[in-house]
Amino acid sequence: MKKFIKWIASGWMLILFFVGFFLFWEYSIPLFDIPRYILPSPSEIVLKGSADLDKLIYYTGVTALETVLGYIIALILGVGFGIAISFSSILRRTLYPFFVSIEMTPKIAFAPLFISWFGFGLMPKVIIVVLVCFFPIVLNAILAFNSLSNELTLFYQSTGASRLKTFFTIRLPAALPQCFVGFKYAAINATVGATIAEFIGSDKGLGFYISIVTGNMRPDLAFAGIFFLTVLGLTVFGFVTMMEKILIPWHISMKRINK
């Protein structure tokens, strides 16, 4: 309870800002005579959106599945390749520059191709999410596993510990903070990837919903869809941030003290 009060106390400016923002939005619509098919008011979005609630919830589930599935696959692949590249000099000279150069291409540009190859189903969306999430994860993982301090490297060498043991007791925990930089960046990208994939070709999901209702001149419903997307994005990001707090509490507290 105390914590909650403290939280409110520290966040009151932000809360005030949001309240002000929505009030301004609500009352500037009649004030400036903005037609509802251009920009609906927040109250109308809530009203019309709740009539479509069943659909919105179902579509949120669809998009969430694509997002989470793609994110998890990207996580496994990204960390796996990251470790492999960090520990193999051959891969570091071949795969690593390859990944770096692909990183420059906007992955989302592949989306129409994947849709045409794999159709309208779940798979092409998952592949696109994997594609947009994989690179930040793998590149940060490579950075993470290569940045162990010289002293620590020498230290474990002087103990004669096996590679496997040093990996789990030193290299992995030392790499986690930098890995999470990639995980969080990818978590932001994940919903974006899923949404755009749905824009391009699908018959369900929030991206599909938003593009259909926009075509039908229903910006109120589009905003309702955007709201659900935001909640989904925040949930994914919040979950990753929570994992960071659980897995590397020492890193969080270190940052706090350094401030």
Binding site: F155, S158, P173, A174
Partner: peptide
Amino acid sequence: IGIMFQDNTLVPW
């Protein structure tokens, strides 16, 4: 051996 480096080898976690 026991070796102590000029920069410490304490891990933050």
